[in-house]
Nucleic acid binder design. Structure first.
Length: 100
DNA sequence: CAATTGACGTAGT
DNA sequence: CACTACGCCAATT
C-alpha cells in the first residue's frame, strides 16, 4: 500500500459537513510528518469525483492551494454549501474538524 | 539518479 | 497574533 493510496482512502472517509487537516490525514496515513506530501497527493488528485480534496485544509483551518477550478475561492464556497462552519475566511476546526 | 519544488507543521522571537 | 527559521515527505524536472 503506497502512501498516496492510503491518503486516497482516508480523504474519501471525510464525511460531508466536516473537514480534515493535512496533518490529520498524514497521521492516519501512517506518516505524521508527511502533511506536505498529502498536499502533493491532493494535487495529483486522480479522482476528483471520489476524493473530496476540498474537505482538506491546513492545521489552522486556513485554505491553501486547490489548483482545481475556481481555486481557494470555490473551495470555500463548496465547504460552505456542505455546511462547514466558517469564521471569516477560516474554518472552525473546533466545530468542523473530524474527531473534534 | 540528483536537485528542486510545494495544497504543511512546529518552535522561537 | 505576526513573522522567521527549520524539518519532513512525495512528486516533478
Amino acid at each position: 500500500m503506497n502512501f498516496k493510496n492510503k491518503v486516497h482512502g482516508i480523504v474519501e472517509r471525510i464525511p460531508k459537513g466536516k473537514v480534515s487537516t493535512y496533518g490529520q490525514v498524514a497521521r492516519l496515513a501512517g506518516n505524521p510528518k508527511a502533511a506536505r506530501a498529502v498536499g502533493a497527493v491532493m494535487k495529483n488528485n486522480p479522482d476528483s469525483k471520489r476524493i473530496p480534496c476540498h474537505r482538506v485544509v491546513s492545521s489552522k483551518g486556513e485554505m491553501t492551494g486547490y489548483t482545481a477550478e475556481g481555486g481557494v475561492k470555490t473551495k470555500k464556497e463548496k465547504l460552505l454549501l456542505e455546511g462547514v462552519v466558517f469564521n471569516g475566511d477560516i474554518v472552525e476546526l473546533s466545530r468542523s474538524q473530524i474527531s473534534g
